[in-house]
Amino acid sequence: MNEELHNDFGHGKNTYPPSKGVPGLPEFEFNSAVGRETKRLLEGIMTTYEAQPFNGNDVPLRTRTNFYNARYARNKKAIGISDHANANGKKSVRGFGVFYWHSSSEAKKLAQIILDEYKKEFPDREKYPIWGDGLFASEPGEWTDLHMCRETKGIFVLVEWEFMTNPESYKLLKSDDYRKRCALVKARSACRWYGIPFDKPAAKPAAKPAPKPKEEDDMLEKAIVVFGMDDFPAAKRLAKKIKAPIYVRDGLPAGRLAKEVYVVGGDEKGLKGDKFVILSGSDLFETSNAVGEFLKK
């Protein structure tokens, strides 16, 4: 399917403390909850891709946008939505807002769709206010000059769902109900963009599977690890073949990453997995050749 959502969520679990959150609420906790539920809602409807791993350490902003741009180069229909919780020195400030790159009419259109879907899902303006008019053009040199809007080559917007620093908003951001409904807004918006029907899944009882360790729940079948961006082109060829996400070694989540870990550049030292496939050489050219030989098999 060509429909693809770059399901971004800002920050990793190691960013709080010291920053990216308020006492009792790491921002990553909210962001990743919305991203994970969005992925669940869109399963079987469209492809979702996350450059920031669930429950993982922070992947640098530049690295994330590089990953999204590489995906966009392969699929020009892809769109991106980045989740965030806002903060302000004035505790009275609150509300929902969407940022888009000022010169992109398509990004503005996507932002307008998200704002409209938010208003439909949360019609009570007293309880769920809108920040300003809800739409913010991200412009060079201004306070709205956001890296995620500026450096992504595709249609990409950044959502500030509410303010962590406001007491009422804080309660919402801590709420599982609000997080799931935010994900619903995000999923509906993506489907609306592509003209795909989407209905809220009906709640139904399901047999509970045997409990598994949390690490097992989060573990992928396959994953690719690169030492640095020099090895990224070779890793992209491998990712297309084995259909696995790519991670930079410095931004890996804690615990075992996947059952099968493909190392492009370097070795398995410091990595955790059940099986390792080492595709490395003394330089990036030998590493690229190692990947090429593997792909011939």
Rank of each mutant, 00 (worst) to 15 (best):
N7Y: 02
G228D: 14
H84T: 15
D250Y: 14
I224F: 09
K296P: 10
V34Q: 02
G266Y: 12
F99A: 09
N31Q: 06
E268R: 07
P18V: 05
N289L: 15
F227M: 08
R71N: 08
D116G: 12
P167H: 05
P123N: 06
E268D: 14
K212W: 07
K153M: 07
A85D: 11
K236A: 08
G228A: 01
D8V: 07
V98N: 06
A137L: 08
S169W: 00
L252V: 13
A33G: 03
D116C: 06
G141Y: 10
I79N: 06
T48W: 11
G195L: 04
F99D: 05
E106F: 08
K212L: 14
L61F: 12
W131C: 03
E50D: 09
Y100V: 12
V225A: 09
K200H: 04
P245L: 08
E43C: 04
A187N: 02
K240Y: 08
L41W: 03
R150M: 07
I113N: 04
D230S: 13
K13L: 06
G141F: 09
A190R: 14
Y128R: 03
A239Q: 09
E50Q: 14
K153A: 08
Y49S: 06
N7R: 03
S92H: 12
K108Q: 13
A190C: 06
D177V: 12
T48N: 11
D217Y: 13
Y68Q: 09
S138K: 05
A107G: 09
K222N: 13
V98Q: 13
P123C: 11
